[in-house]
Write a protein that binds this DNA or RNA. Sequence first.
DNA 1: TTGTATGCGTTATCAC
DNA 2: GTGATAACGCATACAA
Lengths: 328, 328
Amino acid sequence: MVTLNDVAKSANVSKMTVSRVINHPEQVTDELKQLVFKAMNELDYHPNLAAKALAANATRIIKLVILEKVDTVEPYYATLLMGVAQFLNAHQYALQVVTQKNADIGECDGYIITGARNDDFTWIQELRKPVILYGENRHHYDFVDSDNKYGTFLSTGAAIKDGYDQIIFLGIELKESFEYSRERGYMDTMQKSGLQPQIIRFGNHSSESQQYIEDHWHEFKPNTCFVCSSDRLAIGVERGIQRMGGSIPEDFGITGFDGVFLDQIAEPKLSTVKQPVMAMGSKIAELLMQKINHGVTTNDQSPERDRTEVMFSPELIRRNTTRNYHLN
Amino acid sequence: MVTLNDVAKSANVSKMTVSRVINHPEQVTDELKQLVFKAMNELDYHPNLAAKALAANATRIIKLVILEKVDTVEPYYATLLMGVAQFLNAHQYALQVVTQKNADIGECDGYIITGARNDDFTWIQELRKPVILYGENRHHYDFVDSDNKYGTFLSTGAAIKDGYDQIIFLGIELKESFEYSRERGYMDTMQKSGLQPQIIRFGNHSSESQQYIEDHWHEFKPNTCFVCSSDRLAIGVERGIQRMGGSIPEDFGITGFDGVFLDQIAEPKLSTVKQPVMAMGSKIAELLMQKINHGVTTNDQSPERDRTEVMFSPELIRRNTTRNYHLN
DNA sequence: TTGTATGCGTTATCAC
DNA sequence: GTGATAACGCATACAA
């Protein structure tokens, strides 16, 4: 293993100079810097993370806490995780995935928390390391999320332009910010166009939306579009329509929301509002690392503090469950 | 932060005694051990991993290398990853997920490698840390896998017992051990029952198997069961049969393979051979840690060496795409 | 069985 | 601008 000392000897400087070249290059003359860089390359030097962590009283470990009860098998979380892992790897941080609230086992330098409900914040408040949340929240914590309202603005708008004259929103029965935002995007867009909004809500299972379609089939006239709050619901709608013999996308349109895996599994493939989940994962990791490097140790979420909010714009993917897909 | 020293003072012993209580408890008298345990609890002592790693010249980082080109979004890998992560967390190891062969960036204590093809082994050979593979291999590397042959023995056998008189195997067009084993399990079971085997292979996409069913629909007489080598293929078959108006499971049976996410998404839900993917992930991590702790640094895969092979038995889940599902 | 000294690789602090 | 020294927390080697 090549150490700081080895490089120092090879470059004929002290090891502190080498350390400075890495951490505070502005304090070293260009001349020495060149020598050190040369030595580092020749010896293929890589800093020892454990030593670094020990000296800095850090762990170089980030915890990803998944609070939802949902199966961690969810492709959605897997994708997010990959995004986080990608950034962390590039910066030599290691990841620990935690699925319960037993996150207090072992130290870490920071937390990424996803799926936090209101009850969870009493626990989150007690964390003594930087925190970034995945998802909007009313507790003034830094977060990354996608612009949910804009997402349903896109899907609802497209349904209108495509000429569907009845546009029904199938939402998730959940008192969460993201769902409110998605419903608002639909409502606003409908009202601006002078159309009558109609919202029905279910648990987020394809069986429930499928059942609904079948039970209420007589109510739906051809030229109806179902704007869904998740791909899961959209898949159920698709099956229900197929079961009842409706034609997709001519008489009945469907748009989903999320764009992770499920949309591609459906047949015909779903038109959907795709969230850049992978990129969002990377961004969260990046923000957390900034916080860590700036020495933020307290989670000051007082209203006075500037809070970091990063919103990603989702994208409408036109595929085969809405008209005009050939225009894509 | 509570250190070894703090505990030592509190227990009125030297810090080495505390260290020994943790690492070599047999060398310490029960009397002192009790004192030390008490102090550790009272002070809520947790060892500093960075220091541990530094002293042991270790990193406490494990790399999970995913070599397949397949999307890491695959629920299959996500589940495996969760299994690995769970075990690692419990033992205070951190995980780095690596998706290319750029695994050489940064040090680690060991590798878990999944999806290794023959070409990959030249690279794997050069790794200077313990390695465990996910999946059978002919290179004498330690591995964990599920008993693929037994899996199709189960699904084929069930199809026979359920009374289907034509049983067709839909396989994946891939020269990999797992596929050979699955086909062999089917072949052997068919031959033992004096039935005529028939194997067709596709790329692992539901669209291909669906297309096949629709194109060859006239060839399939009622009372046929399709034994598939993946849930993906099974879903395509299901759609094809539904499209052509066949009745499931009365006239046409389907069994999948994998049992991760997709089987539940299908409607009707798939009968499938479920692999205990999560448990397999944990087991891999466990084996790797054993290797690390026993100071195995070389990857001796000479035939003389005992190699560790752990095979998990898959389980037949009877759901709604085969008969007699009420017997489950 | 228990304690002391030393070193792991890095960085902060303080001299020069 | 550069170098010597101590310290981070733990574990090995050796001494008692």
